[in-house]
Design a protein around this nucleic acid. Structure first.
Lengths: 219, 219
DNA sequence: CCAAGTATGTGAAATCTTTAACGACTAACG
DNA sequence: CGTTAGTCGTTAAAGATTTCACATACTTGG
């Protein structure tokens, strides 16, 4: 099927997982209804933006009432493909990689790290966070049909590994190295650069003083 | 002084550290000049966007030539306050916190993690990545005049610690917990949510297929 | 010193995103 | 039932960001 729903704006798409997680919390707490205003306070996104975001998917709420948590949640579950789990590989079991492996992703998530790779012989064969660590030399052989990779290797190795991932048929890479890797146009790369995030925060603090009213914003 | 330079757009501000780092690389490689096109290939940002970004700071380049690496770099050094180092505290020496502590921030950076805090008695007193670990109970006492904090604690502890940080006079928090913390409007919080980043990537892969031409974008 | 080539800086257009405002409808209570 | 308070979905406006396209001015080589 795959309803190509006239394209949700990217800005909206990035907020969906946030909404989903919070709705999940509400549901766990036994809450039956929620208003855009309540959600707004919790996730720090303007309530009009939330209503607009939801409206891209049709009329999910009821005027004068709000949104039914159960219904909204089940709708998002479908939309975010929470039913089927996406299998993920992690490359580079250093500090950051270990953090990921120990993070319990599958709890609120449709993603599961199934396999990890590292170049360090001492780590190969061990288990970290319940995930087996394979040798990086066996990448192509053991990757199987996994289509998403988390890249937490030293930046000098990033492009080389990325090339191999691409050849092995990966379609998305979450790149935590400072290197801006080059990939064919049919592979999606999202960069998260910790040093840059920190520097950007410092820059904003110095040049965009928050005096009176102003909410905090995104990454 | 603090030249309140008629406010650079936020989107531009977020790219500055990226530009800076790459210019630094070029300089190290002994390169003397660079064009917006070359920079574009390297940092994966449209060349017109780069020229526009730079132009907010005045005419930094020369027509027909490009940009002088040395000059551009020294300009950015001033602009990004690379001269003075910003002192940072890290709260929560778990896997992710350890990754940060071992990350050599000061290399290309104006930021340095000076002190870390943790609740685990076994970690207190030790050194991780050259940074001493203090007990979280001593937070207020030992924070001094540090104004930026990296929050890598369990999400259940996030709001409580954030409140204490605020009381202790912090002005910026880089929040890696899934919790959306509430702070006074004069404190800036940037959220980086690893689970959400992964989910967003998966969502984009399924709903925004990259077929022909299309570049990858930001976190 | 000129001609050809190159690359900036920017006006204008296009695109994307957020926010305000409000009509329409619901729930709840007296 | 009728009235009040509450909340959505959406139109329209405002704001932010990206991109195009080109006049302008510099560089380079002859």
């Amino acid at each position: 099927m795959d309803i190509e729903q006239t394209k949700i704006p990217q800005a909206t798409a990035k907020r969906l997982p946030l909404y989903y997680r919070f709705l999940n919390n509400l549901h766990t707490q036994g809450k039956l209804r929620v208003s855009s205003k309540e959600l707004s306070d919790a996730v720090k996104v303007d309530s009009a933006t939330i209503r607009r975001d939801f409206s891209y998917f049709g009329a999910l709420g009821k005027k004068g009432y709000g949104y039914n948590v159960e219904y909204l949640l089940s709708f998002f579950r479908k939309t975010l493909d929470q039913d089927e789990t996406t299998r993920v590989a992690l490359i580079g079991v250093g500090n950051l990689g270990t953090a990921f492996l120990n993070y319990n992703f599958t709890k609120n998530n449709n993603t599961k790290i199934e396999i990890a790779f590292d170049a360090n012989e001492e780590r190969v064969g061990s288990e970290v966070g319940g995930v087996g660590v394979e040798h990086i030399d066996d990448l192509e052989e053991k990757l199987g049909d996994i289509s998403v990779a988390i890249l937490t290797v030293p930046s000098s190795a990033a492009q080389g590994i990325a090339d191999r991932l691409v050849k092995a048929g990966i379609s998305g890479i979450l790149n935590f190295t400072p290197a801006r890797i080059s990939v064919p146009s049919n592979v999606r790369v999202h960069h998260i650069d910790l040093a840059i995030e920190l520097q950007a925060l410092v820059y904003f603090l110095k040049h965009y003083p928050l005096n009176e009213e102003e909410a905090e914003e995104e990454q």
